[in-house]
C-alpha cells in the first residue's frame, strides 16, 4: 500500500467518503459535502456561462460580425426583460422573451414530433405477420404489444370487459418492458460504484489489485 502524496486526491477521497456516510444516516459531513458541491457547481456554472456563452456566443459575434452582429442587441434586450421576472412589479416584461422562446420552440417541435414520434414509430411498427419465427415470435408480439399498450393509455373508455382485457395485456407488456430496462440499467449502475472504489484503491491507496 502506498498512500498518495497529492493533496487533491486526499480532498477527493474525503468528499467521496463523506457522501458514502449518507448511506448510514444524514450527518454534518454529508451536509458539508452537499453544500460544497452546490457552491462549487454554481461557481463553475457562472464562470463557464460567462466565458462560453456571454463572451463566445454574444460579445464576440456582437463586436466582430458587423451589422449582422449588432442585430443581436434585440434578443439581448429581450433577455434582460426576462430577468425582470425576479421583480414582481415588472415581471410582465419577461413574458415577451418567454413568448418568443417558448412559442418558437413549440412551433419548431410540432412537425418534427409528428415525423419522429408518430410517423416513424408507426412505420417501424407496421410489420408483416407471416408464418415464420420472425413473423410470429417477433412481429406479432410487437404489433399486439404496441396496440395493447395504446389501449391501456386510452382514457375515454373504462377498462371493462374485452377492452379491459386488452388493456390488461398492455400493462403486462409495459411491466415486462420496465423490468428489462431495470435489469439493463443495473449493470451500468454497478460499474459506477466500481469506478469510485477503484479510484480510492488506486489513486489514494496506491493498491493496484485489478
Amino acid at each position: 500500500m502506498h498512500w498518495s502524496t497529492d493533496i487533491w486526491v486526499w480532498i477527493a477521497v474525503f468528499f467521496t467518503l463523506s457522501v458514502y456516510t449518507f448511506l448510514w444516516k444524514d450527518n454534518p459531513l454529508y451536509k458539508f459535502a452537499e453544500s460544497v458541491t452546490v457552491g462549487i457547481g454554481m461557481g463553475f456554472g457562472v464562470v463557464q456561462w460567462w466565458n462560453l456563452s456571454v463572451v463566445d456566443r454574444f460579445w464576440v459575434p456582437l463586436t466582430t460580425r458587423g451589422t449582422i452582429g449588432l442585430v443581436l442587441i434585440i434578443p439581448a434586450i429581450m433577455g434582460l426583460m426576462m430577468v425582470t421576472r425576479i421583480v414582481p412589479r415588472f415581471a410582465w416584461m419577461s413574458r415577451y422573451a418567454l413568448a418568443f422562446s417558448i412559442g418558437a420552440g413549440s412551433g419548431f417541435m410540432l412537425p418534427r414530433a409528428i415525423q419522429a414520434s408518430i410517423l416513424q414509430q408507426l412505420y417501424a411498427t407496421m410489420l408483416p405477420i407471416n408464418i415464420s419465427w420472425t413473423g410470429l415470435m417477433v412481429n406479432l408480439f410487437i404489433v399486439v404489444g404496441t396496440l395493447a399498450g395504446l389501449i391501456y393509455f386510452f382514457f375515454s373508455k373504462e377498462h371493462k370487459g374485452v377492452f379491459g382485457g386488452i388493456a390488461n395485456i398492455g400493462i403486462w407488456f409495459l411491466m415486462v418492458g420496465f423490468g428489462a430496462t431495470f435489469g439493463y440499467t443495473v449493470m451500468a449502475r454497478l460499474s459506477l460504484l466500481i469506478g469510485r472504489v477503484l479510484f480510492i484503491l488506486r489513486d489514494f491507496l496506491g493498491m493496484h489489485l485489478f
Partner: peptide
Amino acid sequence: NVPNLAAKRAIILGVGLGSL
C-alpha cells in the same frame, strides 16, 4: 427486442401525441 420495444413504442406514440 420485442416486449420492451412494444412498450417503448406505445409510450412514445402516446407521449408524442401529448407533447404535440
